[in-house]
Deep mutational scan, measured.
Amino acid sequence: TELRLDINGREIKVDGADKETLKELLKLAEKNNDEKAIRIIRHLLER
Rank of each mutant, 00 (worst) to 15 (best):
L28F: 07
K13G: 06
L28A: 06
I12M: 06
D15G: 06
I38A: 11
T21H: 09
E11L: 09
R42L: 14
R42K: 14
L44Y: 14
G16L: 14
L5A: 03
L25C: 04
V14R: 01
I40Y: 07
I12V: 13
N32G: 14
E35Q: 11
R42I: 12
D6H: 15
G16R: 13
N33V: 05
K31A: 14
D34N: 07
L25F: 06
E2F: 09
E46Y: 10
K27T: 07
G9V: 02
E30W: 08
K27L: 12
I7W: 06
L45I: 09
K13S: 12
A37C: 02
E11C: 09
L3T: 08
D34W: 08
L44I: 09
L44W: 15
E35K: 10
A37R: 01
R47A: 14
K19D: 10
L22D: 00
K19Q: 13
R10N: 13
D18K: 04
L45T: 01
L3H: 11
L25Y: 09
E46M: 07
E20G: 08
I40Q: 05
I40V: 09
L28T: 05
L45G: 00
E2W: 10
L3W: 05
R4E: 10
L26R: 01
D34A: 07
L22I: 03
H43S: 09
K31V: 13
T1A: 10
L3I: 14
R47T: 15
D34P: 00
G16N: 10
I7P: 01
R4C: 07
T1N: 13
G9M: 03
E30N: 06
K27G: 07
T1G: 13
D34T: 02
I7K: 02
I41F: 02
E35R: 09
I41Q: 00
N8M: 11
L44A: 10
D18Y: 03
E30T: 09
R42M: 13
E35P: 08
I40A: 05
V14E: 02
E2I: 12
E46S: 08
A29H: 01
K23L: 10
H43W: 14
N33H: 11
A29L: 04
N32H: 14
E11W: 14
A17F: 09
N33R: 12
L5Q: 02
D15T: 08
E30A: 07
D18P: 03
E24T: 11
D15E: 06
L22C: 00
G16A: 15
I40T: 08
K27V: 12
E24M: 14
D34M: 04
L22Y: 01
L26N: 00
D34G: 01
L44P: 00
E30I: 12
L25G: 01
K36N: 12
R42W: 09
D15W: 08
E24S: 11
I40C: 05
E20H: 08
I40L: 10
L22W: 02
R10T: 15
T1S: 13
D15H: 09
G9P: 01
R39C: 11
N33G: 12
E11Q: 09
E24P: 01
G16K: 14
K23F: 06
E24I: 13
K27M: 11
V14Y: 02
E46W: 05
H43Q: 11
I41N: 00
L28G: 02
K23H: 09
T1K: 05
N8G: 15
A17K: 10
G16S: 13
V14F: 08
N8S: 06
E11R: 04
K36S: 10
R4N: 07
E35I: 12
L3D: 05
E2Y: 07
A29N: 00
L26W: 03
N33Q: 09
E11G: 02
N8H: 03
K36F: 11
R4D: 06
H43A: 12
I41L: 12
K27F: 11
E20N: 08
K31Q: 09
K13V: 14
E46L: 09
I41V: 03
R47S: 15
A37L: 08
R39Y: 10
K36A: 11
R39P: 03
R39E: 13
N33D: 05
H43P: 04
E30Q: 12
E35V: 13
R42D: 02
E30R: 13
E20A: 09
R42E: 08
K31G: 08
R39S: 12
L26Q: 02
I38G: 03
I38Q: 08
L3A: 04
K19P: 08
D18W: 02
K13C: 07
L25P: 00
R47Q: 15
E20Y: 06
N33W: 07
E24W: 10
K36I: 11
A29I: 01
E35D: 10
A29K: 00
K13F: 15
K36P: 10
I41C: 00
I40N: 03
N32K: 05
E46N: 12
L5S: 02
R47H: 15
L5Y: 03
K23A: 07
L22G: 00
D18N: 09
A29R: 00
H43K: 11
I7S: 03
A17L: 12
D15S: 09
A37N: 07
A29E: 00
L28S: 04
R47W: 15
T21M: 12
G16I: 15
L3P: 02
D18V: 03
R10S: 13
T21R: 10
I38Y: 06
E30S: 06
R4K: 13
K36E: 12
K13P: 07
E20D: 11
N32T: 14
I40P: 00
I38S: 06
E30L: 14
T1D: 13
G9W: 06
L25V: 04
E20C: 07
R42C: 09
K31M: 13
R10W: 14
A17C: 05
I12A: 02
H43L: 14
R42H: 11
K27I: 12
I38V: 10
G9K: 01
L26V: 02
E35H: 13
R42N: 11
D18S: 07
I38R: 03
K19L: 13
A37Q: 03
E46H: 09
K19Y: 07
R47P: 14
R39M: 12
R10C: 11
L25W: 08
K31N: 10
T21A: 14
D6F: 15
D15M: 06
I40D: 04
V14N: 01
I12L: 05
R39F: 10
T1H: 11
E11F: 09
D34Y: 04
K27N: 09
L28Y: 10
E2C: 12
T21D: 03
D18A: 05
K23T: 08
I7G: 02
E46A: 09
A37Y: 04
E2L: 08
T21S: 11
E24V: 12
D34I: 03
K23E: 09
I7V: 07
E2V: 06
